[in-house]
Design a protein around this nucleic acid. Structure first.
Lengths: 134, 134
DNA sequence: CGGGATCCATGAGGATACTG
DNA sequence: CAGTATCCTCATGGATCCCG
């Protein structure tokens, strides 16, 4: 029988619950990568007007051209980002969040605040753990 | 000046907002890995009684001993999981979520439901994107 | 039983150079 | 300006074997 806990599906077997890796996890995996949230946040702040490639680069400390390009392509592929290309000389490209993309960060806000509230304790636990095994 | 958007900090400069990679992101990165959520979910279902290493292995399809060990160690290090070791022969080890660990999945539930609601559309966007560039 | 140790394949991510 | 194209390093994760 299919069950859920906190939105995650599992099957109830005679040996106990059985969890499987599932496809939607790719969304969390993407969010967990190094630059995605920073790019989306920058676009969210700009909400209303689009941002150019160079503006995004300037606004995200340490990102390289390559990683910005890859991050933007992945977001575009998922339908979270719209890319507007103008074949002028020199070329101009503008980016903005789609409606779906704009709805994502607010949905994550509850968890973001959980992290903010618990981060000091987590850091403390890590230090204690590392210290005990040094 | 320090500002925030959806809980994420950034600095307002004369060239526009500036975002930096920040440490708490490691929590999201950990959640984005392959097994963490499945392990935590299994422990959450068992809430009230502890689970043994072998029970966790059985309940998570495809996980190897090595990855289960690594995932458990990381959770323990962050203070999300408690490990109880009994030096018998053969040895027995029991795991349970800490109070902080137990509070994490509920905090994530809002975003989990966002994923569930938007997943079909994301899949559709990916197919369309891949099709257009084939 | 619950790992640790080791080896290996893959992919993320960084540095640099080049281009339509 | 907004990328590609290469090359490189390192971390993640899988497979296998061994051990107290």
């Amino acid at each position: 029988m299919a069950q859920h806990i906190y939105g995650r599906p599992y099957e109830e077997t005679k040996h106990g619950p059985l969890f499987r890796p599932c496809a939607p996890h790719s969304v969390l995996a993407r969010l967990g990568d190094k630059w995605t949230i920073l790019v989306m946040s920058h676009l969210a702040v700009a909400s209303g007007h689009r941002l150019r490639f160079s503006e995004l680069m300037q606004g995200i400390e340490g990102i390289t051209q390559r990683m910005l390009t890859l991050t933007l392509r992945n977001l575009e592929r998922d339908g979270l980002l719209a890319r507007h290309y103008f074949p002028e000389v020199p070329p101009r490209v503008e980016y903005e969040l789609t409606v779906m993309g704009a709805s994502m960060l607010p949905a994550l806000e509850g968890f973001t605040s959980w992290i903010r509230d618990h981060w000091p304790r987590i850091e403390e636990c890590r230090r204690a753990y590392d210290e005990a095994r040094k």
